[in-house]
Amino acid sequence: MNSNTATVAHTPEFRTARRINRSLTAGIEKRALRWMAERAPHWVTSDGMTLLGLLAQIGAGFFYALSRYNNAGLVGVIVCIVLNWFGDSMDGTLARVRNQQRPRYGFYVDHMVDILGATAMMCGLGYSGFVHWQVALAMLIAFLLLSAESYLATYTLSCFQMSQGILGPTEIRILLIAGTLALLRSPYATVLGHRALLFDLGGAIAAAVMLAMAVAVVARHTAELYRQEPLG
Rank of each mutant, 00 (worst) to 15 (best):
R34E: 14
P41Y: 05
V218F: 13
G165E: 00
I81K: 04
S3Q: 14
G124S: 06
Y151L: 12
G106P: 04
R98Q: 02
I28R: 03
A207T: 03
Y69F: 14
Q100R: 08
L54F: 10
A206S: 10
L52H: 05
D114T: 09
D114F: 07
M122A: 14
E224F: 13
N84T: 13
L152P: 06
S46E: 02
L181I: 01
Q100Y: 00
M122C: 14
R31H: 12
T16M: 13
A153W: 08
L167C: 12
L54K: 07
Q164K: 10
R68Y: 12
A40K: 05
W35N: 10
G124Q: 03
L55S: 07
A120V: 09
L157I: 04
S147V: 04
P187C: 01
I20H: 10
S186N: 09
A138H: 07
I20T: 13
A72C: 07
P12F: 06
V82N: 10
A136F: 10
R195M: 02
L140S: 02
S89W: 01
L24M: 01
L24Y: 00
L116N: 11
H10C: 09
R18P: 06
L66W: 14
M162N: 09
A223Q: 13
A136P: 11
V218D: 08
A32Y: 02
A9V: 15
T156N: 13
Y64G: 11
W35A: 11
L201I: 15
M139H: 11
Y64L: 12
A120M: 12
W35D: 10
G165L: 00
P187R: 02
R68C: 05
P12R: 08
G193Q: 02
L145M: 12
T25L: 02
M213A: 11
L201F: 15
L175I: 10
P169V: 01
R68W: 08
S46P: 05
E229R: 15
L33Q: 05
V135N: 05
H42D: 14
Y108N: 13
L198E: 05
M49K: 04
Y226W: 15
A60D: 03
E29Y: 00
L145C: 13
R96Q: 00
L83T: 03
L183E: 03
A178V: 12
R39T: 01
V8H: 14
R18Q: 15
G168Y: 00
L231A: 15
L83H: 04
T25I: 02
A138L: 09
T190N: 11
H111F: 00
V97P: 02
L116M: 14
S46T: 05
A207G: 04
R173H: 04
Q57K: 10
D114Q: 09
Y155G: 05
H194G: 06
I28V: 12
C159D: 11
L137Y: 10
D91N: 01
H111T: 00
D47N: 14
S23H: 00
S89R: 05
Y188N: 09
A153N: 15
V215H: 06
R220W: 06
V215C: 06
P41E: 05
I20F: 05
I28W: 03
